[in-house]
Computed example of a mutant assay.
Amino acid sequence: MKKALFHFTLIILVLPILIACKKDPLEFTIKGNIYDESFNQGLENAQVTLTAVDANTGDVRIVGESTLNASGDYSFTFLRERDLKFYLKVEKDNYFPIDETIFFSEITTENDNIFNYTTHAKAFINFKIKNTGASDPNDQLKLEIYEAKTGCESCCGLGQRFFNGANIDTNLYCANNGNQYYKFIYWVPEISLVVFDSLITTPFDTLDYVIEY
């Protein structure tokens, strides 16, 4: 009886220690806001996907998927694993996508990890360039884009473009951020024509700009 009582007392004493030593699994929370700069509001109803890259195998798994609320907020809470980095992708029709990399070293289990990003509605400008004068193989039009969106698949990039010779009749189709300026200059040396101009590109639409010389 005394031996049984001793064992029972020992279990009572040891059990709290075992419970105290058992740790809850560690979790990460990655959250933030996606802002629509074209309309100065949260990017409502965009699709957000967070994926993780395993540090040992390089395998990619989906951590979470969600739809942005009316304020453009997102949040993912998940167990800590042996991950190297994370990819955050935000997509919405007629908006420039967001593809960001978050490294394991940038986040902590102690606090929420806040990552905010911005994007714009897609807009376009279509330069309609035509030589309407007398055909001359020495004709030249110079077009320089000096303020515009860069780095996207449909972006034209900054710098000069040259349209040489006769019978020029072409289009140059360029993407820009909606509700932002697209600034450029064009000139024709032979007739001393120099034009500085700019347009605010309309979200979800294409503006035609005619250059005839």
Rank of each mutant, 00 (worst) to 15 (best):
D99A: 11
S135N: 15
I185H: 13
I98F: 05
N164P: 02
I107G: 03
N94P: 00
T101H: 10
Y146R: 08
N179C: 01
Y117S: 09
P137R: 13
L143S: 09
K142C: 02
F96D: 04
L141G: 11
N138S: 13
E91D: 12
P137E: 13
D169G: 02
E144K: 15
I125G: 02
D139A: 11
S135Q: 15
G133L: 09
G178H: 06
D93G: 04
K142I: 07
L143R: 12
L158R: 09
C156Y: 11
K128W: 08
D136I: 09
A166C: 01
I145W: 13
F104S: 04
E153K: 14
E147Q: 14
A134K: 14
E110W: 06
C152F: 13
L143T: 03
R161V: 01
D112I: 00
D136S: 14
I98Q: 05
T132F: 10
S135F: 14
H120E: 03
E91H: 12
T170K: 03
R161K: 15
D139M: 10
N164L: 12
E147M: 07
N177I: 00
G133R: 13
G157E: 02
Y95Q: 08
G151V: 06
D169F: 07
K92V: 00
I168H: 10
A148R: 13
I145D: 10
D93Q: 14
I114A: 04
N138P: 00
N138A: 11
F162E: 12
A123R: 15
E144H: 12
E147N: 14
A134R: 14
T109W: 08
Q160F: 10
E147K: 14
K183S: 13
N177P: 00
Y117N: 08
D169L: 03
I168T: 09
E100T: 08
K142H: 11
N179S: 07
E106R: 15
I185A: 07
I125P: 05
F184P: 10
G165H: 06
Y186W: 15
G133D: 10
N179L: 01
N131C: 00
P97M: 05
I114K: 11
K128D: 08
H120Q: 05
L172H: 05
P97G: 04
G178D: 01
K92I: 00
L143V: 06
S105F: 14
I125K: 07
T101P: 06
Q180A: 02
Y173M: 08
A123T: 11
H120T: 01
I107E: 04
T109H: 07
